[in-house]
Write a protein that binds this DNA or RNA. Structure first.
Length: 282
DNA sequence: AGTGTATCCTGCAGGC
DNA sequence: TGCCTGCAGGATACAC
């Protein structure tokens, strides 16, 4: 669910409240979200101080004082909710308390951090320095950094559809189905075009489109369709600015043509048949 | 190498 | 109202 802009928004919120706090208690309500042995997770986490909050792709990363990293992939419906009240159920202004808590961290100073996840597709893993390096190396470059460059896309021998390429976290880290579809529309590229068919100018346009849509979505604090909330429990504002995602049958904002929904790779793709023709724009 | 399918889960919207 | 189907911001494993 949450993609890079949502993870970034959550990170910025957590950065205001977590660094300097010590984890004084760990309660694992739903062990199936852990990718680390529960007993070990609990024992290794207790007593650690949170020193920083970062992001890698669509993952939230809490840096700990022993060099380890608590990596949180939010899956489709995961939320990280810092709570300052004693029972952790409500927060002033928010109103959306944790309904499906999976892991609760009690923090120094009487606050807590709840990992809440309706569907429990999310995963938490506690990695030491070496494991973190190995894990992070499996991911592609950050799309907002300089090493995400058009030469990754063209020339390329890959015949995979460009949307599948964008969704593959090993190629580039942080793009999900919403922003992949939006970036392709902005770049005027058919979602199913094989990567190897892209010209260098098309690759450059796509890199630029990915960056602009991600930047704008971060400014809007992410996209809320159903479940997504930031660290303060607030919705993101980018949904109203989506041009194709979820807009099957609606008019393309640029040309008025009806947006088409197709399915491949097991997921919905949305595109404008006029602005994103198979052959490429004139 | 790429594609289709299934799996992990729950909730919600829409059709009847 | 209720039951059923399909669908969902993700990731992975498998057979063809």
């Amino acid at each position: 669910m949450p993609e890079l802009p949502e993870a970034e928004t959550i990170v910025r919120g957590l950065r205001e409240v977590l660094p300097g706090r010590t984890i004084v208690g760990v309660e694992v309500v739903r062990p199936d979200v852990l990718r680390t042995d529960p007993a070990r997770f609990t024992a290794d986490l207790r007593g650690r101080r949170i020193v920083d909050v970062a992001r890698r792709g669509k993952n939230v990363v809490l840096g700990l004082d022993d060099g380890a990293s608590l990596v949180v992939n939010l899956g489709m419906t995961g939320r990280l909710l810092p709570r300052t009240d004693p029972d952790g159920s409500t927060e002033p202004g928010g109103g959306s308390g944790p309904a499906h808590p999976a892991v609760r961290l009690r923090l120094s100073g009487g606050s807590r951090l709840v990992y809440d996840d309706v569907r429990r597709f999310g995963e938490l893993r506690l990695l030491d320095t070496a494991a973190w390096r190995r894990w992070s190396e499996r991911l592609g470059p950050e799309p907002l950094e300089e090493d995400f460059e058009p030469s990754l896309l063209s020339p390329s021998p890959s015949r995979t559809p460009i949307r599948s390429w964008l969704l593959d976290q090993r190629r580039v880290a942080g793009i999900g189905n919403i922003y992949a579809n939006e970036a392709l529309h902005r770049a005027g590229l058919h979602p199913r075009r094989p990567v190897c068919s892209l010209t260098p100018p098309e690759a450059a346009a796509l890199v630029s489109a990915v960056r602009s849509v991600l930047r704008e979505a971060i400014e809007a604090r992410g996209t809320t369709l159903r479940d997504y909330r930031d660290a303060e429990g607030r919705e993101g504002d980018f949904a109203v600015r989506l041009r194709v995602y979820g807009r099957e049958g609606g008019p393309c904002g640029r040309c008025g043509e009806s947006i088409l929904r197709t399915v491949f790779g097991g997921r919905s793709a949305f595109h404008c048949p006029s602005c994103q023709p198979w052959e490429g724009r004139a």
